[in-house]
């Protein structure tokens, strides 16, 4: 009796905790509301199954616990019941999988008008790079990295010269513009993680990974590292500031380009060799 009640209380308590929990996802700041919706669908379906199974079990314990003279039924199988349960489960699984795959398709399909920006991780800080006036980012290579060139840009790539390099500052983004976030690491795995954006992806040395999203509200958001990267993993922080277009422009005008930073303003003259070595993303 007590056992049945406690089991039921566990089920009821879990549901109540879920409903009244003060710990819930952060208010979303990107276009990935569909991800939250998929989580909600999954919560509804799995929650119903959880409650049904545990409550049924509690009832069984209450109704069929041992009493003097009770004898269990002899009940090897019930083909029909098992088939119905299988079909029901398959439908439930499908109801979660289908929206999941649809949203994943959106997640991996980058819109053509997305602006490319770059986030680079290293132990244990973040650097950012935005395309310059030409709207393109220059190529880079880990082997170029030195104290003058912390991001390892190719010096002879003209596209790289006007790139905006933010070495130890915050990333600013304009609201409402889709961005494709290119992710690079120079040493170990990192993961560019802003809880409010929902999207995240590992940064892998030796390749360029990416995700895309559109910021939908202004504000300042914490950047954390979500892939264990060594002793100071927990301290690897930065901020992303989403602004109105005008404020963003004002900020951008104050940033230094790669050429300015490396003191090679002269390099802007006609060294038009198209492209340099580009690290190929590894498709495995």
């Amino acid at each position: 009796m007590a056992v049945a009640i406690i089991l039921l209380l566990v089920a009821v308590g879990s549901v109540l905790f879920h409903l009244f929990s003060p710990w819930w996802w952060t208010p979303i700041a990107s276009n990935w509301r569909y991800i939250d919706d998929t989580i909600s669908i999954t919560f509804w379906i799995t929650g119903a199954v959880f409650f049904a199974v545990i409550a049924f079990m509690a009832y069984c314990v209450f109704r069929f616990h041992h009493k003097e003279g009770r004898r269990a039924a002899y009940d090897p199988e019930n083909k029909k019941l098992e088939w119905w349960l299988t079909i029901g489960t398959a439908i439930g699984v499908g109801a979660m999988l289908a929206p999941g795959l649809v949203v994943w398709h959106q997640f991996v399909t980058v819109p053509a008008d997305a602006t490319e920006i770059e986030v680079m991780g290293q132990q244990w800080r973040w650097s950012f790079r935005l395309p310059g006036k030409d709207g393109r980012m220059g190529t880079s290579n880990v082997r170029n990295i030195s104290s003058d060139n912390p991001l390892g840009l190719n010096l002879d790539d003209p596209h790289g010269q006007d790139d905006v390099v933010i070495e130890s500052g915050d990333l600013h983004l304009p609201i409402g513009k889709p961005v494709k976030v290119l992710l690079r690491s120079v040493d170990v795995l990192h993961n560019f993680y802003v809880p409010e954006f929902r999207a995240k992806m590992d940064m892998v040395p030796g390749m360029v990974t990416y995700f895309w999203m559109t910021p939908i509200r202004t504000g300042t958001f914490d950047v954390l590292c979500a892939e264990l990267c060594g002793t100071a993993h927990a301290q690897m922080r930065a901020k992303v500031i989403v602004q109105e277009e005008a404020d963003y422009r004002a900020w951008l005008d104050h940033q230094q380009t790669f050429a300015e930073l490396s003191g090679r303003i002269t390099a802007m003259k006609t060294t038009y060799k198209s492209g340099g070595e580009q690290e190929k993303p590894l498709r495995r």
Binding site: V3, L7, V10, S14, W25, W32, Y34, I35, T38, I39, T42, I45, T46, V49, F50, V53, I54, M57, V61, V93, M96, L97, G100, L101, V103, W104, F107, N191, Y193, P195, R198, A199, K200, A226, E227
Partner: peptide, 30 residues
């Protein structure tokens, strides 16, 4: 055994979150 069923059902169902690729994106590594 009853305790196993409760915890396994709970943990198994949250596996459906993490196995469903796009749901895993915000939840992974948390």
């Amino acid at each position: 055994a009853l305790g196993f069923i409760v915890t396994f059902v709970n943990g198994g169902l949250t596996g459906l979150f993490l196995g469903n690729v796009v749901v895993d994106v915000p939840l992974s590594d948390t």
